[in-house]
Amino acid sequence: TVIRNAWAGDPYPIDTLMMYMSNMAWNSSMNTVETIAMLTDKDEAGAYKIPFIIYSDAYYSETVPFADLVLPDTTYLERHDCISLLDRPISHADGAADAIRHPVVQPDRDVRPFQSVLIELGARLGLPCFVNEDGSATYRDYADYIVNHQRTPGIGPLAGWRGKDGGSIGKGDVNPDQLQRYIDNGGFWHHDFSDDQRYYKMGNRAYLDFAVEMGFIPCAEPIVFQLYSEPIQRFRLAARGHGKVQPPDAERGRIEAYMD
């Protein structure tokens, strides 16, 4: 986990660990005892191995007591969220789908959606894609990011109602009214595959062409399932010392054992 890597200084030591949403000291750790030990462990000089922890949460979760700085987050009823095709979508075998959450109540306390906080931090740090040429912030907040961010031309976090008139799906220009279209449709967008796209998708030309149009894949080539995986074997051989690219010594045994 990110906590273990921060504690071990792998691949390099850090001075600040920032976490949000996941309560990683408890329900995302898979090993709470060792994770808590890492969060509180000190080096030979008596300094914490993870020097500074920033954590954002809407509740007093099990991770909050280990944080040096706590940023109060909103609940899911008070912020925008995006259940995107780019990350863990809600699609099923016969169709593509994505969704949003949107505020139904306004916060009555001093909290901010952490996605918006991250976007503002990106702008303050001058990170690429978060500032314009004049140095101003590219995005106002997370809702603005959902609508206007494009991973590649025409492909953004949401696939529905793209294009200036909202008539495109998958790929299309930014639609300023996109979030409202989702809200009007109950927060969801869904597209049914045609009958000839629903079977053997790894080698179905009709589906592969559609997948390219949607931006799912770069080209309409069959997706080959390898019983023997040459890329994985290269990892194993590297762990045994073969090739120019070598893994860290501490990871050799694990790579050789599990890249099978």
Score class of each variant (00 low, 15 high):
residue 1 T to Y: 11
residue 6 A to I: 03
residue 9 G to W: 03
residue 9 G to T: 01
residue 10 D to I: 11
residue 10 D to W: 12
residue 12 Y to Q: 14
residue 18 M to C: 12
residue 20 Y to Q: 15
residue 20 Y to N: 12
residue 23 N to T: 04
residue 30 M to C: 09
residue 30 M to P: 03
residue 32 T to R: 14
residue 33 V to Y: 11
residue 34 E to D: 14
residue 36 I to F: 07
residue 39 L to C: 06
residue 39 L to Y: 05
residue 40 T to M: 08
residue 45 A to W: 04
residue 45 A to Y: 08
residue 45 A to Q: 12
residue 48 Y to V: 04
residue 50 I to Q: 02
residue 51 P to M: 00
residue 54 I to A: 10
residue 55 Y to H: 13
residue 60 Y to V: 13
residue 64 V to E: 03
residue 64 V to R: 06
residue 73 D to N: 14
residue 75 T to W: 10
residue 76 Y to S: 13
residue 77 L to W: 14
residue 77 L to A: 15
residue 79 R to I: 01
residue 81 D to E: 14
residue 84 S to T: 09
residue 84 S to W: 04
residue 85 L to Q: 09
residue 86 L to W: 08
residue 91 S to A: 10
residue 93 A to F: 07
residue 93 A to W: 09
residue 94 D to I: 08
residue 95 G to I: 10
residue 97 A to I: 08
residue 100 I to M: 09
residue 103 P to E: 02
residue 105 V to S: 09
residue 109 R to N: 09
residue 112 R to W: 11
residue 117 V to G: 10
residue 117 V to L: 10
residue 117 V to A: 11
residue 118 L to G: 06
residue 125 L to A: 12
residue 125 L to V: 05
residue 127 L to Y: 08
residue 128 P to Y: 08
residue 130 F to A: 05
residue 137 A to P: 02
residue 140 R to V: 10
residue 141 D to L: 01
residue 146 I to K: 00
residue 146 I to G: 04
residue 148 N to G: 00
residue 148 N to T: 03
residue 157 P to A: 13
residue 160 G to A: 06
residue 160 G to L: 07
residue 161 W to L: 01
residue 162 R to Y: 05
residue 163 G to S: 02
residue 169 I to M: 12
residue 171 K to N: 12
residue 171 K to G: 09
residue 171 K to W: 06
residue 173 D to T: 10
residue 174 V to M: 04
residue 174 V to K: 02
residue 177 D to C: 00
residue 181 R to S: 07
residue 182 Y to C: 07
residue 182 Y to V: 09
residue 185 N to W: 07
residue 187 G to S: 06
residue 191 H to Q: 12
residue 191 H to G: 08
residue 192 D to Q: 12
residue 196 D to H: 08
residue 200 Y to K: 15
residue 202 M to D: 15
residue 203 G to E: 13
residue 208 L to V: 00
residue 213 E to T: 10
residue 217 I to W: 04
residue 218 P to R: 00
residue 223 I to F: 07
residue 225 F to A: 14
residue 225 F to R: 15
residue 226 Q to I: 01
residue 232 I to G: 01
residue 233 Q to L: 10
residue 235 F to V: 04
residue 241 G to K: 03
residue 242 H to Y: 15
residue 243 G to T: 00
residue 243 G to L: 01
residue 251 E to D: 14
residue 252 R to A: 03
residue 253 G to M: 03
residue 254 R to D: 11
residue 254 R to E: 14
residue 257 A to F: 11
